[in-house]
């Protein structure tokens, strides 16, 4: 950008402040309203399928395929049917047990490892970190087959342990927490060291309390990922007592292929906890996604 052209307009606002400011303000207002309309339309189109699912789940069999957004006679029969025709309470409970256990244990283990990798000195630290980091490149679907064979060999198929254990260990949380711990000022630990605190005390009474906000963000992400997991539960369980909700709705659909009002009610039941968690924690989720891998 040539600097000589820059000099002239820079003086302009002070010379004639009123008209140019007004022009800029009206231009800005026009820009804002255009954006409001454009983004508004895109957003409505984007959320439409989700809204359609929820409203259709309150429609009766006769109007589930109508093109009206809202049901003419809203009913909760579909939900009653879902819970009476299939053990949906059990499915939800299984998903809840698995998701919460994975989330709590993963946060605990990941933060321990991240603390060591960020704050302690020991031989092989960088190599271990790179080793952990490199596992990020290999995603779950790629190792699905060998993981299945390992879990089969361990005798963990068809058990809660088989659903939970493989889901706990991933490099993502360790990586994010390590980045966070690297930024903690050393003075906070130094006082504890002078007091003769052990490393566990430092971790438990200094590092963990400092991690509250990042724990909250990661907890929501972990919970969502595990609540939504489908493939691993599909290959790891055949026992109906162990079915998680995502498997539940697929098998429910197989039995009610054309009864869309029931299928959509089942899908709504599975989606509501995630949408609620998202609505409540959206700022934290958005922040953690924005910082994941980028900082």
């Amino acid at each position: 950008m040539p600097s000589d052209t820059a000099a002239i307009p820079r003086q302009a606002p002070s010379a004639t402040p009123a008209p140019s400011a007004r022009r800029r303000r009206s231009w800005r207002r026009r820009k804002a309203s255009t954006l409001l309309v454009v983004v508004g339309v895109i957003t409505i189109l984007t959320v439409f399928p989700l809204v359609w699912m929820v409203t259709s789940s309150f429609k009766g069999a006769d109007e589930v395929l109508s093109t009206d957004l809202l049901p003419s006679a809203p009913t909760v029969d579909n939900f009653e049917y879902v819970f009476s025709a299939a053990p949906f309470g059990r499915y939800l409970l299984n998903s809840f047990i698995v998701s919460v256990t994975v989330t709590v244990v993963a946060l605990f283990f990941h933060s321990m490892a991240a603390y060591a990798l960020a704050r302690l000195r020991f031989p092989g630290r960088d190599a271990i970190f790179m080793g952990i980091f490199s596992t990020l490149l290999v995603t779950a679907p790629v190792v699905l087959v060998p993981l299945f064979l390992v879990v089969h060999r361990l005798g963990l198929l068809n058990s809660y342990a088989g659903l939970i254990l493989p889901a706990i260990f991933s490099a993502f949380g360790i990586f994010l927490l390590r980045q966070f711990y690297l930024a903690i000022p050393a003075e906070l630990e130094e006082a504890a060291v002078l007091d003769g605190c052990g490393y566990w005390r430092i971790y438990w009474s200094i590092i963990v309390p400092l991690s509250r906000s990042i724990f909250a963000a990661l907890a929501v992400l972990f919970f969502l990922a595990n609540w939504n997991a489908f493939l691993w539960p599909l290959v790891a369980t055949t026992d109906t007592d162990l079915q998680v909700v995502q498997l539940g709705i697929v098998s429910f659909q197989d039995q009610n292929t054309t009864d869309w009002q029931y299928v959509l009610a089942a899908a709504t039941v599975a989606a509501v906890p995630t949408l609620l968690a998202f609505a409540i924690f959206q700022r934290r989720i958005v922040e953690s996604i924005k910082t994941s891998g980028l900082k």
Binding site: V47, P49, L224, N228, F230, L275, A277, V286
Partner: peptide, 12 residues
């Protein structure tokens, strides 16, 4: 709202 479809499961 634009992020919302990312929150529900692929089954849904």
């Amino acid at each position: 709202a634009l992020f919302a479809p990312n929150v529900v499961s692929l089954v849904v």
